[in-house]
Nucleic acid binder design. Structure first.
Lengths: 207, 207
DNA sequence: TAGATTGTTAATCGATTAACAATC
DNA sequence: TAGATTGTTAATCGATTAACAATC
């Protein structure tokens, strides 16, 4: 249970190496080199070798790294296989999309249910996952050992809903609304997914 | 048309300042200070002042910045109001969610249509937006002046689809699939939205 | 061998934070 | 005034890149 903790940037890069390795595996390639990986991500090849060394993976001179082995090492290091239980707060379009987004499951995100305050939605099922009333959240979190709340409510109510969610016993809040949440309790980790900022950064030098 | 170009990190922060300003406006507050903004984002308050100075916004001693004015200045600097035409490639769950995600429109993303190769989907409409066959992409891109392709296809085909999309005249590809795209044409900007990496970075020190 | 690659240290670069005078 | 804040420069920190010996 005492795994090595990597810094955030390293984790994000390792995840992308894993994506690349998956495509190499699909193509039936046995080896991959650090310059090859670095070209996908526009980073230096020495960065790639450093990151990989953190996993205690070894490469082979002239060949590079074994695709299957490196892929497995990343999976172990980032514990893809360890299930992390989550619920979605807000059964709108985005919540509905995420519940059906099977790729997340492969990386350890185990979404158990949705929560919504709309009485017309409560009791319905979305691809085997039930929609519950918000009033049952705390009970569900403790009985099902839920650690992550994925927030997909309208922007206007995101802070208010987050304040409520923060009292439920959750460990992390993954915020998909265009807002920056402020949570008093510093034991709760907040990830403000800034899709709009990423988008604006992409287009800023093009328009 | 010759706007100042900000670096990517600055743009992402300014976008989040805008989110915070929106909530201040909702609450009817007239002023906001740099330490207040910095607490939302766990950054230094001098960073906030520097970013704001880039916009040529001025603050007031003892009070901070005028909420409405600063908000407007960010909007102008990042050209939220300038429409950027886009299409979604892949009319699955995520594509469907994004087409209905109205917040994006407020920040200048103007999604015109969806494209999919499934004959059962082609011709259908999703909230006023038509689903076209992929074979019509290049024609649509040039006639409608589309500059952004949002990729929401299955991971297995993402590179192959991206290669095809790259020939259509598009300027940017916003990749939502768990893959890292490699596009030869360096005039095309690729944004690999790394949701899974962000998620793994959030939970890594908690599990 | 020649050439390509790893592993690793040193150098550089850029981003963030600290500090503080000026101001109201 | 005292206290809070801006604006800005200098210092620090950390991340990235350069360089190269060792290796196959």
């Amino acid at each position: 249970m005492k795994e090595k903790i990597f810094n955030e940037k390293t984790i994000k890069r390792l995840t992308q190496y894993h994506f690349i390795l998956e495509s190499y595996e699909d193509k039936g390639l046995e080896y991959i080199s650090s310059p090859q990986i670095s070209k996908y991500l526009n980073i230096d090849d020495s960065q790639v070798r450093k990151d990989i060394k953190l996993l205690n993976s070894d490469g082979l001179q002239k060949k590079g790294y074994k695709v299957k082995e490196l892929k497995k090492n990343i999976e172990t290091a980032l514990s893809f296989k360890k299930n992390k239980n989550a619920v979605i707060i807000g059964a709108g379009n985005l919540g509905t999309a995420l519940i059906k987004y099977k790729d997340l499951k492969n990386y350890g995100l185990n979404i158990l249910a949705l929560f919504d305050n709309n009485p017309l939605k409560v009791g319905m099922k979305l691809s085997t996952k039930e929609i519950f009333s918000m009033s049952h959240l705390a009970e569900f979190v403790s009985s099902q050992k839920v650690e992550i709340a994925i927030l997909t409510v309208p922007r206007e109510v995101s802070q208010e809903v987050a304040d409520f969610v923060a009292t439920s016993g959750i460990k992390c809040i993954w915020n998909f609304t265009p807002s920056v949440l402020y949570i008093e309790d510093k034991n709760i980790k907040v990830l403000n997914e800034n899709l709009i900022g990423n988008f604006l950064a992409m287009v800023n030098d093009r328009f």
